[in-house]
Design a protein around this nucleic acid. Structure first.
Lengths: 311, 311
DNA sequence: CTGAAAGCGCTTACAG
DNA sequence: CTGAAAGCGCTTACAG
């Protein structure tokens, strides 16, 4: 009776009073290095989709630098606002490591790895390997890399896998053909760096015959530089990106697709398991990227056959 | 003494206990129709930048439909979790209107309008007018529109402004040349619809000589369709998008730029004013879009001169 | 099963 | 100025 009246009036208990009394809260925190990025947006969407089935709310802490990351993580961790924290795309070391280790609430790393902490990530090394394999099978002899900022762990892993697999095939990767993006925006995952980097590669007397970009954003910039040259993309010059942004399909870009929605959903599930105490032992979930072949490597015979643009 | 020790130990008060005792909370809610969208991500970034200077935390409620929007808004409004709510891109009518009107905490509409509620928005009608003016000055005689979902208020406003200004110039906009995107993803602001829409326009016996797309995403799809045709973009066929995504510059797309970061920042400021009781009277802040001319309308002489791609 | 009391971790108004 | 008490709006363990 009382309940039904309350229900009709749309009564909702005061969240603070409730969590104080219950000594628990239905809130999850996400600590993110700047939000304006397709990858985060997609992962967050997967997360929210899964969260929608629950009573949990999402608190978002975004940081523009590593220092700010520590501050935000500290806030997320120690004020009892949330029951668990998702930490995005940041190397856990030094100050951050201390914070996480002495955390009173469960932490799950998203797009990151640390031996002692649950994590969900995408196999970036594997992505690099798939790219190298695609080039090797297609007879590429002189590949180059359009690299994001060197400090970016995902980019380094992609590069490492790429290099390792090329080596297996006896294909050299000349150091001068690894062009780092100096533009710091988005950790170097931006169009501008791809454009300038490709311009630099094309102006060489010994240009590469294929380029692996560590993101689609960089690849799109590279595509533009190629358009201004006399090269025919997918014939004289091959290009692979990373991420499979919606636009990749429309510019015919071969790329590595990551299951971003699944990453977000799985991250929430794992955090829930931790919060309810179900899980035991550290769990590392690694999703594999898939190579989607499109026009930008059309002359390369092998590799997963892509979708073209039939709509 | 006590304080300094607390400080050294990194003590942080329990948020729930604190807000219960103080009867106020340092949290702001953002209610958003699905987060995976460049516009929201950018606006949120502007918001977080401004929030970073304060002690406020951000609670994000995302909804995938209007029904869910009402549920989330209800949650955001009535559990005392936040001190103010930002409602994104949704027409305030019916159930939502009731909810907002009887809200106990201040509400600011972002990218939306309602006579009785504070709002921050971009002048979409103006964007349409600028596009029409650019076409008219350039001598376009037979324009078409690649429209997002008809229900989308921003898209309708863009179309309305476009139509009105064409009329002023005595240029007819044939109804059959207004192609609505039936693909519901992102309210019709997607690449796919632009691609199919442009294909349809190009297959007509009486194709248009210029196209105004209600978003860059649609324009990018249209560009791809054009690439597959014999048309030379910016010469035989002109194209204007909307948003100025980072990629617009790289594909040489003329577009309308909205100050997304400012919108987010200003929204937070206004909400703060409301929360502290400073503001009085309903405030509607309207930002104006700017036309950025690039290659896709290069043969049209007039209009704001664009940046080209010099980097 | 029902209902009144104690307590969650803070802040604040007030007595000393 | 200092310190102990009351109270924020709930939940829960417990007395009846």
């Amino acid at each position: 009776m009382v309940l039904s009246v309350a229900d009709e009036l749309g009564y909702q208990p005061h969240a603070s009073a409730r969590s104080l009394a219950r000594r628990r809260t239905d809130v999850v925190s996400a600590v993110i290095p700047m939000i304006s990025n397709y990858f985060f947006a997609e992962v967050l969407r997967g997360l929210q989709d899964r969260m929608a089935e629950t009573e949990f709310d999402l608190l978002v802490f975004s940081a523009r630098s590593l220092d700010e990351m520590a501050v935000q993580l500290d806030r997320a961790l120690h004020r009892g606002r949330s029951a668990g924290v998702l930490v995005f795309s940041v190397p856990i070391a030094g100050e951050l490591e201390t914070l996480v280790e002495k955390a009173a609430q469960p932490v799950v790393l998203v797009d990151g790895y640390h031996a002692g902490i649950d994590s969900i990530s995408s196999d970036n090394r594997k992505g690099g390997i798939l790219a190298a394999e695609h080039f090797a099978q297609g007879g590429i002899r002189r590949p180059a890399v359009l690299m994001a900022n060197r400090e970016s762990v995902p980019a380094s892993d992609r590069l490492a896998g790429f290099e390792a697999r090329l080596r297996t095939h006896g294909i050299p990767l000349e150091p001068s053909l690894i062009v780092e993006n100096r533009n710091p925006l988005n950790d170097g995952y931006n169009e501008q760096g791809g454009y300038t980097g490709m311009k630099a590669l094309l102006s060489r007397s010994d240009p590469p015959d294929a380029v692996f970009a560590t993101s689609d954003a960089q690849a799109v910039g590279a595509l533009e530089a190629l358009k201004e040259s006399s090269r025919s993309v997918g014939v004289d010059m091959h290009l692979i990106g990373y991420d499979d942004l919606p636009i990749a399909r429309y510019v015919g870009l071969t790329t590595l697709r990551q299951p971003m929605n699944d990453i977000g959903g799985r991250a929430f599930e794992l955090l829930m398991d931790r919060m309810t105490g179900t899980a035991n032992g550290t769990v590392h979930t690694v999703f594999s990227p898939t190579l989607i072949q499109r026009q930008s490597t059309r002359a390369l015979a092998e590799g997963t056959v892509g979708e073209g643009i039939a709509l």
